[in-house]
């Protein structure tokens, strides 16, 4: 088992790319500990012989036929998906530099 401490909170925050203040680290560490403790109650249940459940409904996933259907295009023939981008350049989504500063 692992211990819920401030380092763990910082690690999880980093994985989620969240920036926490030191006060927040303290708050969330105690909240995380409470949540984990609560979930650990499940450890008391005897699950021997019970199959793992990944989804509560006994359904089959529906499947699609392999047929193309294009998302609407703008008058200039470009995908409307670009309309929702904060910044576009050469029809690409413009994002902060990935390589430098790494």
């Amino acid at each position: 088992m692992f211990t819920v401490n401030e380092d763990l909170t910082r690690k999880i925050a980093h994985l989620a790319r969240l920036h926490l203040t030191e006060d927040e680290v303290k708050t969330f560490t105690s909240q995380l500990r409470e949540i984990i403790n609560y979930i650990e109650l499940l450890e008391e249940v005897n699950v021997s012989g019970v199959k793992p459940l990944t989804h509560p409904f006994e359904l089959e996933t529906p499947m699609r036929e392999d047929k193309i259907s294009h998302y609407p295009k703008t008058n200039e023939g470009k995908s409307k998906i670009l309309d929702s981008a904060p910044e576009i350049l050469y029809d690409s989504f413009k994002v902060p530099s990935i390589i430098s500063g790494e």
């Binding site: 699609r64 392999d66 998302y71 995908s79």
Partner: peptide, 20 residues
């Protein structure tokens, strides 16, 4: 970006449907 839609662009609220 011409072959894109809210699903493959990861917009909130969309659901994947598996290709047979």
């Amino acid at each position: 970006n011409s072959n894109t839609c809210p699903i493959c662009a990861g917009h909130p609220g969309v659901l994947p449907v598996l290709n047979k």
